[in-house]
Design a protein around this nucleic acid. Structure first.
Lengths: 230, 230
DNA sequence: AAAAATCTGTGACGTACCTCACAGATTTCA
DNA sequence: TGAAATCTGTGAGGTACGTCACAGATTTTT
């Protein structure tokens, strides 16, 4: 083992790179699927949803990136790089934008940076894997519960009565994260509500019994650094 | 752009690392999900299936790694690394085994190597993304067709009458790759057979009309380096 | 404060797909 | 070469989940 822990990503390294801040107003897109990819970004403020549109008008949401999250980095190391997803600002947001060229140059010259960068990519892979496991192996219920757990680990605030998810979510939003439908999500949420597992006030959800969700989908208890949505 | 192409991974770099060859007999496991991960591997001979078991006895297969494929690399950069998947030899196989320590040391000291390594990881991410898109967004039909396309791009041999997939596959195998069931796969295959899209001789499939499969699932025409199963 | 837009909740119904069951074909192995 | 094991093909029936439709609640806009 070369370091005693890998968990602490030194995000400051990215800010030491030449780049510029960009603002994205709420509802605006930072980039669109298929566009030529010139930059990668570190989110500094706000919330950016990463997703894609499926052929028939549906939307699949994959991440909800917050401050410190790195986005758009998947396009590095490709010829004719294109963004794989859309990045939509859910709040007024700000990102630090770094061109692929600058990143690639540093990756070739600074082993410490490239080591850090690999940690980012590796976490990214493992997050996706754990997410897709849940989506594929446990039906729509598994997909929704998994999404709720990830939201807890990412936006949860501990309260006396449970974990308050501190970001607004509609049924449709949850459906997009779960590759499911609004109606289906609604029925599942009602069911959880009746059982007292969760409660909902407006667009904010409180989880009273996270363990119920975890055991129902046979959660592998992956570390909370991985089981996240950002 | 720092290089004029990224596509050619210099696999030889991995063999210049200190390591040793290991043999895995057909049916044996190179590693198991949850085991402490000490090594990563380059497949040198045979076929290694990467997958995992779901709680209820089902199996989800993710990759079918062949000579030159890198496997078990996802565990790098973690404290207490554990393999995320099983690796089962489908034929008598041989791998070149390199300890994580050796790899990590070189990653820190040799920017060229770490650049190469990032290309591997990046391709890995993009393969998984494109696979999961198909599995989630197009139902079981999409999942199966996607699997067939990937098998073509990985094991396909051009013949007069179409693309011959040069590896044996049972209905159950295809179901495992598609997060589906044997019966469901069988019915879909019969249907493709009746339409003349494919034909099957024993455990070998020939695809007569790859384009039919692609257009049916709204394939994004991702490059064949990405749309693979290895 | 009224109007418009968006979101929630729920019933009815259709379809995709899973499960079970079993016969026959094919492959493996002793 | 014959027995055992594995694989294929198919019907019947159940279940999860998507679709459609619409009323009422909530939020946003003007």
């Amino acid at each position: 083992m070369l370091k005693d822990t890998y968990s602490s990503l030194d995000i400051d390294m990215f800010f030491s790179l030449e780049g510029e801040y960009e603002n994205v107003p709420k509802g605006g897109y930072l980039f669109l699927e298929g566009q030529r990819a010139k930059n990668m970004y570190v989110v500094t403020e706000g919330l950016i949803k990463i997703g894609k549109f499926s052929g028939d008008g549906k939307e699949l949401s994959l991440r909800l990136a917050r401050s410190q999250s790195i986005i758009g980095e998947l396009t590095l190391f490709s010829d004719d790089p294109r963004y794989l997803f859309n990045a939509k600002a859910m709040e007024d947001s700000q990102v630090y934008s770094i061109t692929n060229e600058v990143v690639e140059k540093l990756l070739l010259s600074d082993p410490k940076f490239s080591f850090q960068f690999m940690i980012v990519m590796n976490e990214h892979i493992r997050k996706q894997h754990s997410k897709f496991r849940d989506l594929l192996l446990c039906g729509k219920k598994g997909a929704l519960y998994s999404t709720l757990i990830r939201l807890c680990n990412t936006f949860g605030i501990m309260r006396e009565d449970g974990i308050y998810i501190d970001t607004p979510l509609t049924n449709q939003d949850l459906a997009n994260y779960s590759a499911s439908t609004r109606e289906g999500v609604n029925r599942l949420l009602m069911n959880l509500r009746e059982k007292g597992i969760i409660s909902i006030h407006g667009k904010y959800i409180t989880i009273h019994d996270l363990n119920y969700l975890k055991t129902t989908i046979g959660c592998e208890d992956c570390p909370p650094t991985i089981c996240r949505i950002d």
